[in-house]
Structures are given as C-alpha cells and as structure tokens.
Simulated scan of single mutants.
Amino acid sequence: MTSRTAAPALASRARSVGSSPVREILALTARPEVISFAGGLPAPDLFDAAAIRAAYDRVLAEDPHRALQYSTTEGDPALRAAVAARLGARGLPTGPDDLLVTGGSQQALTLIATALLEPGDAVLVEDPTYLAALQCFGFAGARVVPVPCDEEGIDPEALAGLVDRERPKLLYLVPNFQNPTGRTLPAERRRALAEVAARHGLWIVEDDPYGELRFGGREVPWISCFEAAGDRTVLLGSFSKIMAPGMRLGWLRAPADLRRACVIAKQAADLHSSTVDQAAAARYLADADLDGHLARVRAAYRARRDALLDGLGAALPPGSTWNRPEGGMFVWVRLPQGQDATALLRKAVTHDVAYVPGAPFYAGPPDPATLRMSFTTHTPAEIREGLARLARTFG
C-alpha cells in the first residue's frame, strides 16, 4: 500500500486574503423576494441588449475568422481607437497606442500591481476604499496604508505626511462617485495630489468605472490631465457600468514603460482579452449611440437615487446621516453612534431587504455604524418598498 504525504500548503498570500464579504452577501440575498441595496451592479433592465446583439451579429457575419481567432495582447485596434477618441473628447488627449485592453478594470489593477509592487511595498488608499482593490494589493504582498479622508475625499496634507513617512510606491483612488462612499474628489484636491506625486515620486492609479454616470454637478478633470503627474498617473476605465459587465472589458492608460510591463504581465495571465467581445464592443461604439444610451441610464439612475434619498429619513434611526452623490451608484450611510450595521444586516435579511455593511471597505480601523446602499437595480417603487422593510428592521 502506497503511503500518502500531505500535498504542499497553499501560498501564504492565498491563505491571508479572504473572500469578498460583498459577494457572500449577494449570495445570501439572491432570493427573488429580497429587495437588495447591496450589489454594485448596473441595472439589467437598462442594458442596450438589442444594439449589443446587433453588434455581435454583424461581427460574426462579416469576419468570423478574425472574431473567433487569437488576437494581440494590446487589444483590438478599433476598440482602442474608439476609447482614445472618447477620452480626447473629455479633455485627455490619448492615442490608441497609449491603451491596453483588459478583462475589466479589475484585471487592469492586477496588472499594475504585478508590474509595480514588490512584497512589503507600501500602497496608499482612501479609507474606506474599493474592497476588491484591497484584495488585489493583499495578493501582491503590499502593505496597505489608509489615508485620512473627509466628506470630499483624501486630505492632501495628510497624504504628503504619509508619503514622507511611508515611502509608498503608489496611491490608489476612485476619484468619481467612489465605491463605497459615492463621493467625488474636487478639482483642487486632484491638483494637490498630482503635485504631491511629482514632488515625492510615486505613482497615482485613478480607477474610474463610474465617471460617465454623472447626473448632477459639473465634470471634474482626471488627475491624469494635470501636467505635474502626467508621467506617473495610470487611468483605469471599464465598459462594465456603461455597456455590459458580462463582456468583461476594461482598459488602462499608462506611460509607455509601465504599459509595456503590463502587456507582458497580461501575456502571462491570459494572452489577450476575448477577441469576439472586443470586436463587438468596437462595432457597438461605431454603430450604436452610446451617449444616447447613457443619457437614458443617467436619467433612470437620478430618479432611483432621488427615491432612495427621499425615503431614508423615515427608514433609518434618528441621528443617521448620509450623502447626496452627483452620480454613480452608491449612497454612504452612517447610523447613530453605537449601532452595528453588520449585526443589523442579519435582521434586515429576515425582512427581505439587504445592504452592505461598511466595515469591510476600511483599510484602517472600521466604522461599524457605516453601510453602503446601491440605488441602481430597483425601480423607484421597489426602492420605496425596500425602505419600508428597512424601517421595520430599525424599528
């Protein structure tokens, strides 16, 4: 009889990085009767499905041999040209060769971490921040350091002090309608962050999946637009929130040396993003009216945000506070001192309503009274019913 020895252990990074609590909550609340404010999902009823199907049909009818074949790592030339044109129209001159197409902006972040970070390197993040970014930096073995924030985002003076002390490789932030807080970093702070990066020699990674979902206020320039940080800023974008997340397409815009390193990292990861999905996205951008589609999405999201904000006062305990985002998908709530949003979620689920506790989003000590509410996937009428159920939870 052959003796058996235990298989080698998992890598330490696989043991130390936990699964996403948000994904676990979504699995627990998948019952159709649950009204969920938990997911960071675009509204499926607003997908431009007919035009997307037409794009796939045309691609497969006209050039199936190319659409179904391997392709270059950098990405479909027509898709990169279309993205470059959209960035240029929004004030950031960009050429197709400045871009790398990725499997959503999540893969772009992973490629950046692979190309830049050594185990033990310091990474600065907003606090709270995007949960999957914390997972990504954890797998890279980085030391994640939270930067103090207020209602407008990162405090530039606090950032400068941390850069002096921690010597970080990069600063990661979501500048527009941040996940989870919904806040937007003002232009003057973006300029100040660019100047800190120029003085101290760190990279800035600005992740912008929500920027085209603005339905109030005025457009704010990307940090990439400021000359001080133009040679050290990486801009990440995604088609998930403006086209369809199931296509898993995003992109990164980076200076040449870093972009080339990301190309090599992507070759090692998956060779290239799906050829047919890229071709269909490029065809959609050429044939359909994405701006018209986005106008309809923004109008719907504005109505849904307003329905949520109008009912929060009656649904939440006295003393609760919340913000009013000018776009995106999220409202950030703080319950009265002493309340625990994680513990209360269990009660909420018994009333067939859900949200995401804020605690997992913090890189530093969490505020247990915080929670994130998404307003995108339910109609105003459903939102009002969900808030009535939430009121019974806190009653």
Rank of each mutant, 00 (worst) to 15 (best):
R191F: 08
V205K: 01
A197C: 07
L213S: 01
P221W: 06
E188T: 13
L185P: 01
E195C: 03
L202V: 08
A197N: 03
G201H: 10
G217E: 09
A192H: 05
L193F: 05
G216H: 13
V220K: 08
L185R: 00
D207H: 12
G216E: 13
D208N: 15
V205I: 14
A187S: 13
A194V: 03
G211C: 14
G217H: 11
G201D: 12
G201T: 10
V205Q: 04
D208T: 15
E206Q: 13
T184I: 02
P209H: 01
A187M: 06
P221S: 09
R189G: 04
W203S: 04
L185S: 01
R199A: 15
E206S: 08
G216F: 10
R199E: 14
R191S: 12
G217D: 11
R183Q: 10
L202M: 13
R183N: 06
A198N: 04
G216I: 09
E206K: 08
R190S: 09
L185Y: 00
G217N: 10
R214S: 11
P221C: 08
D207F: 02
P221G: 08
L202Q: 05
R189Q: 05
G216T: 10
A198R: 11
V220G: 05
A192S: 09
T184N: 00
E206P: 07
W222C: 12
